[in-house]
Amino acid sequence: MFQAFQNLDDEKRYKIINATLREFSIHNYETASTNKIVKDAKISKGILFHYFGSKKNLYLYLYDYVTAIFTDAINNSLDLEEPDIFKRYKQIMMMKLALIQQYHTLFDFLKKTYAETSLEVRNELDQYNSKLQDSSYTRVFAGIDYNLFHENIDRTKALDTIKWVTNGISDRYEKQLKSNLDNSEAFHQLLEQCMEEATHYFEFLKQLLYRNTKG
């Protein structure tokens, strides 16, 4: 599918992807304009629909393209030999926030998709997210030593708590990081501050959830 688009040279393909990404990262599905996309990409609407067939296909292609970038970045960098879930989450958090510097528009688009309400694409997004989360969860948490937890701890609730704390901290710093994309020193200072705060919260959670918190 989309073979004609895939066969384009990189410059033409990325110009269309970037124009589409800009429009869908600012507007939701219904209000995003294909006229604006083709104008920015300097192509005709006929050519755009020749490649994708419909606005819906274009949107879902972009979603698949963006999630693949982040999934590959995390999978290629994650230390799957690390058995401590807190250390594994710190790796994920560090990579996610660092990627903002390189792919901040992609993050904006993904946030839009999470809140998307259009019935034309919502079902496909939910199905894709479910499959993606299942495969990502299996890989990201492969080799985690759950024996580190207290035996009377509800593992599901413990994992949810760790995830919520991680997401809460990273989301809180995301806006500040984006506002300092052009200031490398400030960006990295904020990144270090964020990771330091995460370390404090993780140490607190270890006291509650782990059998032994030394090391």
Rank of each mutant, 00 (worst) to 15 (best):
residue 85 I to M: 07
residue 23 E to L: 00
residue 87 K to R: 09
residue 115 A to P: 04
residue 41 A to E: 12
residue 74 I to F: 03
residue 60 L to F: 05
residue 89 Y to V: 06
residue 120 E to W: 00
residue 83 P to V: 04
residue 167 N to C: 05
residue 132 L to K: 06
residue 60 L to Y: 01
residue 47 I to K: 13
residue 36 K to V: 08
residue 105 T to S: 08
residue 115 A to T: 11
residue 45 K to E: 11
residue 106 L to A: 14
residue 170 S to H: 00
residue 105 T to F: 06
residue 95 M to F: 01
residue 149 F to M: 10
residue 136 S to W: 12
residue 147 N to W: 01
residue 170 S to G: 00
residue 146 Y to G: 05
residue 73 A to R: 10
residue 25 S to C: 14
residue 162 I to H: 07
residue 113 T to G: 10
residue 166 T to D: 01
residue 56 K to Y: 00
residue 169 I to K: 00
residue 111 K to Y: 14
residue 83 P to L: 03
residue 63 Y to K: 11
residue 65 Y to K: 10
residue 142 A to P: 02
residue 87 K to Q: 10
residue 139 R to W: 13
residue 28 N to T: 13
residue 53 G to A: 03
residue 163 K to I: 03
residue 59 Y to M: 04
residue 37 I to W: 08
residue 136 S to E: 14
residue 162 I to K: 09
residue 119 L to D: 11
residue 101 Q to T: 03
residue 61 Y to H: 12
residue 132 L to E: 07
residue 124 E to P: 05
residue 144 I to K: 04
residue 160 D to T: 13
residue 64 D to T: 12
residue 142 A to W: 13
residue 148 L to E: 10
residue 144 I to W: 02
residue 153 I to R: 05
residue 102 Q to I: 11
residue 140 V to L: 14
residue 135 S to F: 11
residue 118 S to K: 07
residue 37 I to N: 04
residue 126 D to H: 07
residue 120 E to G: 03
residue 90 K to A: 02
residue 102 Q to D: 12
residue 80 L to G: 06
residue 149 F to Q: 07
residue 89 Y to W: 04
residue 56 K to G: 00
residue 94 M to E: 11
residue 60 L to I: 02
residue 55 K to A: 02
residue 119 L to M: 07
residue 34 T to Y: 02
residue 110 L to W: 08
residue 72 D to C: 04
residue 69 I to D: 04
residue 148 L to M: 14
residue 53 G to N: 05
residue 146 Y to P: 00
residue 39 K to N: 09
residue 168 G to Q: 04
residue 77 S to R: 15
residue 147 N to R: 09
residue 141 F to A: 02
residue 139 R to V: 05
residue 59 Y to R: 06
residue 32 A to E: 02
residue 76 N to Q: 13
residue 123 N to D: 08
residue 49 F to C: 05
residue 151 E to H: 14
residue 60 L to R: 01
residue 30 E to N: 15
residue 165 V to Y: 00
residue 40 D to P: 00
residue 50 H to Q: 15
residue 23 E to H: 01
residue 127 Q to M: 13
residue 54 S to I: 06
residue 40 D to R: 07
residue 156 T to G: 14
residue 46 G to S: 14
residue 33 S to C: 08
residue 115 A to W: 09
residue 154 D to C: 12
residue 75 N to R: 12
residue 66 V to S: 00
residue 62 L to C: 10
residue 120 E to F: 05
residue 113 T to M: 15
residue 111 K to T: 08
residue 28 N to I: 11
residue 103 Y to G: 04
residue 64 D to Y: 03
residue 29 Y to F: 15
residue 141 F to P: 05
residue 105 T to H: 09
residue 91 Q to T: 07
residue 153 I to V: 15
residue 117 T to G: 05
residue 91 Q to W: 05
residue 128 Y to R: 14
residue 55 K to Y: 06
residue 163 K to R: 09
residue 100 I to P: 02
residue 149 F to L: 15
residue 101 Q to R: 13
residue 70 F to G: 09
residue 158 A to F: 04
residue 95 M to S: 03
residue 156 T to L: 14
residue 50 H to G: 15
residue 59 Y to L: 02
residue 142 A to L: 12
residue 38 V to P: 13
